[in-house]
Design a binder for these strands. Structure first.
Lengths: 139, 139
DNA sequence: ATCCTACAATGGACATTGTCCAAGTCAAGC
DNA sequence: GCTTGACTTGGACAATGTCCATTGTAGGAT
């Protein structure tokens, strides 16, 4: 069952075949698909779905706070449905693999007032970069 | 005088008018220009400089480790010449302003081995997001 | 069950950002 | 002042994302 779909339904979202397919494709843990990957997967279930609809739907999910947008590589944005639990990302610089990670500590507490320049800070993103085990073994 | 230019010269870089202009445009603190912004600024000094050259030059500076590439918004990459001193970024979600900040603590130490999944981690990027004072006052 | 209507989907044009390449140009050493 | 290999150019191309007029449809009202 799709948790993501349930959450969206509960918000009075008008449910269409397209939105259902996008939500189903995106559901799960350690999912970090690009918009085009979502589209490609959606097309196998609903061949006539358009790119614009996938972009619109992902954008709405982000606005609703049910999906997080992640920019790990400066190329395409990735969409992470794991929005209900705070987490950070660990990225392999060679193959691009992404894992959700849960660091201890509060990164916000590490930023003293003198370094905040009067900003009201609402969230902190941490990206750990390195090489994953399988890339390391084929160095 | 351009520190960035000095450092590049010291590495045996072949010095051309184009590279000089790009280095001069990019030099300074709290500089976080996109490639196109660099190009626009460069054109005012050297009208015939091409986009390709700006991209090439920025890419080389990044490879040499004299400039850092920052992806704060999933749109265009930004180029930060402040590569000699480790720092993180504070970004205004409304106007896009960026400040360099220097948090205390070591974010790497906050990630336990059990959360590293065998990765060899080489660096950590932290992005603080919020609203800057001038945007807050015109809410 | 059918009708209405506001909201959603479509697809294709357009925008932005970035990469590539063949040909011309030039900095730096001799 | 040559020569040469590295640098620059401009334009084509690629990837990602946005916009909009038109068409379709979900879900409430009748």
């Amino acid at each position: 069952m799709s948790d993501l779909l349930e959450r969206l339904r509960g918000r009075g979202w008008r449910m269409t075949a397209q939105r259902r397919v996008v939500a189903e494709v995106l559901d799960g843990d350690h999912v970090h698909l690009t918009a085009d990957e979502v589209h490609a997967a959606a097309v196998t279930r609903l061949p006539e779905i358009s790119r614009a609809t996938v972009y619109n739907t992902l954008g709405e999910m982000v606005t609703l706070g049910e999906v997080i947008e992640v920019a790990t590589d400066g190329r395409a944005k990735r969409y992470d449905p794991n929005a209900h639990r705070p987490h950070q990302h660990l990225v392999c610089g060679r193959c691009g693999a992404i894992r959700d990670v849960h660091p201890g500590g509060d990164p916000l507490a590490d930023l003293p007032d003198t370094e905040r320049f009067g900003f009201t800070i609402s969230n902190v993103e941490v990206t750990y970069r390195g090489i994953c085990p399988s890339c390391a073994s084929t160095a």
